[in-house]
Simulated scan of single mutants.
Amino acid sequence: MAGACGRTYRIDPKLDPATCNGLTQTASGLLAPRTQVAGIAPGGAVSTERSVDVDVTPPAAGACPESWQVGARLTPVFGTRNAGQADLRTSALGQQVVLPNSQVLLPEPGVYRLTAHLFGIATWNFTGRHIASISALWFNTTTNAFVPGSPRWVLLHDAPGTVNPETGLKSIGGNAVCEGFVTITAPTSYEIRALRGTGDAGTQANANLQHYLTGGIPQQGIFWQKVSD
């Protein structure tokens, strides 16, 4: 500005030196930083990724005031499949047998719920006492350990019985829901395993009791879902 006797004065702005002051003085003038808002994509436990999508819609160019719209969507990963049938007839008592097509790959770190709806059946062709059983469990193929709390009896039958005179067979079936929660830090595979038993140790019973387990008929299925980061 012009001063007395034609002199020119320069008046510098006085800036508060507080560290929280976003206004700065540069060679070309005052600078007020502008905030840019970005969304967060799902997928990780400790990073910029989460099981919640954060969506951001910026304001129109030149808008005053600048209004940002921020929203969130829950986007946990999940999956389902139908398993096959495990033939337990030739397996040793207590031997774990993998249920075909029951394998699931949990793709990212977090907490998951595993669920398997299973059906088992045992048949025999002799008259006399029998103890037929099938149990199933979720199994971590990476650590070679079963999921705690997941083992279930699919069927357990203990009774004397006679065979059907027309078919020569007697059978018993049962259902179970095999579930468990797991926490992983990297992609991990799980599967369903089954075990059969007779319990009476009789040669005839062991030779003639036939056991099957399935997770693939219309009423059954394998499910997994991420429930937390």
Rank of each mutant, 00 (worst) to 15 (best):
H157D: 11
T127E: 11
Q103N: 06
S150E: 00
V177F: 05
S135V: 06
S150V: 02
G180D: 03
L106C: 08
S102W: 03
W124Y: 14
Y190A: 01
G149I: 02
A145E: 11
N144T: 11
T185Y: 11
T188C: 05
A201N: 12
T143P: 02
P165A: 04
G120F: 06
R152N: 07
Q103E: 12
S171K: 09
I172A: 15
I192H: 00
N144H: 13
L155S: 05
S133G: 10
I184D: 04
P109D: 13
T198P: 01
S133M: 12
G168I: 00
N175T: 13
P160V: 03
A207F: 11
H211G: 06
R196P: 02
I172Q: 15
A116H: 05
V111R: 14
R152Y: 04
V177S: 12
P151Q: 12
A116Y: 03
E166I: 06
W153A: 14
T127I: 11
A136Q: 02
S171M: 14
G110V: 08
N101D: 15
A145T: 15
L209E: 10
G128A: 08
Q103S: 10
W153P: 08
G197H: 05
C178W: 01
T203R: 10
F119N: 05
A145W: 05
T142F: 08
W138F: 02
R113W: 09
T185D: 15
P151M: 07
A159N: 13
I131F: 12
H117L: 09
S133V: 04
P160C: 01
G199L: 08
G149H: 04
H157C: 07
T90V: 09
F181A: 08
L169H: 10
P109E: 12
D158G: 13
S91Y: 09
T123L: 11
L118V: 06
Q96N: 14
L209P: 01
Q204K: 11
A132T: 10
L169P: 00
G149A: 03
P160N: 07
S150N: 03
E108I: 06
V97S: 09
S91Q: 13
G180S: 07
G128Y: 06
G110D: 08
V97L: 13
G128F: 04
N206Y: 03
G120Y: 03
F139C: 01
H211A: 10
V147D: 01
V163P: 00
G149M: 02
L105N: 09
L213E: 00
T142V: 14
V154S: 04
G149V: 02
S135P: 00
T142R: 12
P151Y: 04
V177P: 01
D158P: 00
T185Q: 15
T127M: 08
V182C: 09
R129W: 11
I131S: 11
L118R: 01
T142H: 09
P165R: 02
N144F: 13
A136W: 02
E166Q: 14
N208S: 10
V98M: 07
A145N: 13
I184E: 05
V147N: 02
V182D: 06
V177E: 12
H157S: 13
V182R: 06
F119E: 07
T167Y: 06
T143Q: 12
V97M: 12
Q210D: 14
